[in-house]
Design a protein around this nucleic acid. Structure first.
Length: 427
RNA sequence: GGGCCGGUGCCCGAGUGGCCAAAGGGAUCUGGCUGUAAACCAGACGGCUUAGCCUACGGGGGUUCAAAUCCCUCCCGGCCCA
């Protein structure tokens, strides 16, 4: 499979500084980089497309560089007003990089066996914290005019607003990113930067800086932003308003799987192309399946299984799928003990004494103690609205729950809403 | 440093002494329909021992029977001037 054709089929190319870059990538031997945010101990769904792109590159014989934005994370925003770039300490950054490194390893080959296309993980703190101010202003700043910088679409909206300003630090961000590209070109022979379409302005600053400072020609390529059918940015968690993380302890494999399984029909063609490595014919067949038999959700299943397998492994993917089936399609009371435990393996759990359950449990208190409701008032609301279930049976405020409810004599599966679970183990 | 404007619930935003737990929108949550979807419809959306009480309108202090609303002060943001 030729990379150019594959990427065009998948719609991965939004803009390029030089269309011929696709041919060079197809031929192999190109060193390319993408920046990642290291302010959390895990990457999230928003990075998945870029991760896949790096993987695709490497599979085609190119060398991927994952660049952690530790420099920018360390600086943060001095005006405190932007929550987007929280201040981060060097120790925390190091910790985060450990987790991120492991996640990258699922997509990229960092082993020496990969030869010249062995992946690299770098941290821009390495050069951003050591370059001197005068060097930076002379070598980087002199190549750009403020006039062109304020014309960038990325800062224009901020400059036009009359309630918030744009700090000099934030404004300088594009120069820092340009400098990254310069260092990677000089030190590692990197000639391509990838990113989302929102990165276009920053990327072109980089290609320009490299050309002016070294005379080398380097390229930029952006991928389209993945949007949901309703125009919202894709990647928010189903439960709450959180991001979908790649770390199993932050977003369980089950939750992750469910999130993808619930993707709306209109988004599946893009998800299949962006997030899976399925061949073209399989993708076209799945498109067709979505069109003609949407209720089977074959595409969603394929996406969920493929992505969870890639991120968490095959076993986790199988368990997640099985758990969903049991939870939504079968009677939970009829599962044998081992299957039941496997189904709720991802859910938080707590241990209660036999005596207190035998004495009878108030449903509202049950929800609060299982952390499925934030307060008694909220618990009351869920019960009133019919959003509380024990062992998949809807319960109300006056429902008396006692030891006779226990599955296998010692479990209560408490659920709030569609898919928020908690397991009570009776000791 | 000076002048002017502003800081309201998760976000945006109305409110300029009592009728304010605070309009409206968005987000979120629950239910209904359905395909564990989208769209749509209905309801909820600070807490509690819930016809009541407590906590909340940047922080602190004050005026008043009564303050998100008035006064003082501090902090933060924006615009302009130096």
């Amino acid at each position: 499979m030729i990379l150019r054709e594959d990427w065009q089929f998948r719609g991965l190319v939004h803009q390029t500084t030089d269309e011929a870059i696709l041919d060079r990538l197809s031929a192999g031997g190109v060193t390319a980089y993408i920046g990642f945010d290291p302010t959390a101990p895990s990457l999230h769904l928003g990075s998945l497309l870029q991760l896949c792109n790096l993987r695709r590159l490497q599979l085609a014989g190119n060398r991927p560089i994952a660049l952690a934005g530790g420099g920018t994370g360390l600086i943060g925003d001095p005006s405190f007003k932007a929550v987007e770039r929280p201040l981060i300490t060097e120790e925390l950054l190091e910790e985060n990089l450990v987790g991120i490194r492991e996640q990258l390893g699922r997509f990229l080959d960092f082993s020496p066996a990969a030869g010249p296309s062995k992946a690299l993980l770098l941290n821009n703190a390495q050069w951003l914290t050591t370059v001197t101010l005068t060097d930076f202003l002379r070598d980087v700043g002199k190549h750009f005019t403020v006039n062109q910088m304020i014309a960038k679409e990325s800062v224009k909206s901020r400059l036009d607003r009359d309630d918030v300003g744009l700090s000099f630090t934030e404004f300088s961000y594009m120069l820092l990113q340009a400098y990254d590209f310069l260092r990677l070109n000089v030190d590692h022979g990197c000639t391509l930067q990838l990113g989302g379409s929102d990165q276009w302005g920053n990327i072109t600053m980089g290609t320009e800086l490299v050309r002016k400072e070294t005379g080398n020609t380097v390229a930029g390529l952006t991928s389209p932003l993945l949007l949901r059918a309703d125009g919202q940015k894709f990647g928010k968690s189903e439960v709450g308003n959180d991001k979908v993380w790649l770390d199993a302890s932050m977003t369980s494999p089950f939750e992750f799987h469910q999130f993808l399984l619930n993707a709306d029909d209109a988004t599946t063609p893009a998800l299949l192309r962006f997030f899976t490595f399925l061949d073209h014919q399989t993708i076209l067949d799945l498109d067709e399946a979505t069109r003609t038999r949407p209720q089977e959700r074959q595409a969603q299943r394929a996406i969920a299984n493929a992505v969870v397998t890639l991120v968490h492994g095959e076993t986790a993917a199988r368990h997640a799928e099985r758990a969903g089936e049991a939870l939504f399609a079968e009677s939970i009371a009829e599962l044998d003990e081992a299957t039941l435990l496997q189904v709720v393996a991802d859910a938080p759990s707590s241990t209660w004494s036999r005596a207190e359950v035998a004495a009878g449990v108030d449903p509202a208190e049950l929800l609060v103690r299982c952390e499925l409701a934030g307060s008694k008032g909220e618990a009351g609301r869920f019960l009133e609205q019919g959003g509380a279930y024990v062992n998949n049976v809807r319960v109300h405020a006056e429902t008396a729950i006692d030891i006779s409810w226990a599955l296998h004599g010692r479990y209560l599966v408490v659920r709030r809403g569609r898919r928020l679970l908690h397991l009570v183990v009776i000791a």
